[in-house]
């Protein structure tokens, strides 16, 4: 199946405070953005947490997702860390049955 979905990975630093996950998840939900994966963990600074968010952009631009996330006061910074399209090292033999 071909779709126009594009995968992006965002590294989002947020204030480590109660409710911050609800703020981010609620934003994605109400703006109809798609979260594919979400990982939340600590940073060296105990007042800041790091979220790694896999976003499937469909019908919205990545810029819009980032701009809306950035409006949350609890969000400190957003970085697009989407891996560059990997060069394909095809080490497997092709089996053409």
């Amino acid at each position: 199946m071909t779709t126009s979905r594009r995968q992006h990975t965002l590294e989002v630093l947020v204030e480590n405070e109660p409710g911050v996950l609800a703020r981010v998840a609620g934003l994605f939900s109400r703006r109809a953005f798609n979260i594919e994966t979400l990982n939340v963990g600590p940073t060296e600074d105990s007042s800041i947490s790091k979220m790694i968010i896999g976003v499937a952009v469909e019908g919205h631009s990545l810029e819009q997702v980032i701009a809306q996330l950035d409006k949350l006061v609890s969000v400190i910074s957003i970085k697009d860390v989407t891996p560059k399209a990997k060069e394909v090292h095809d080490t497997q033999p092709d089996y053409q049955n």
Binding site: G19, A22, R23, G26
Partner: peptide, 14 residues
């Protein structure tokens, strides 16, 4: 009320 008003406050506090 903090949870309820998250979508339409610029920010909120408990």
């Amino acid at each position: 009320i903090r949870g309820i008003t998250m979508p339409f406050t610029k920010h909120n506090y408990l």
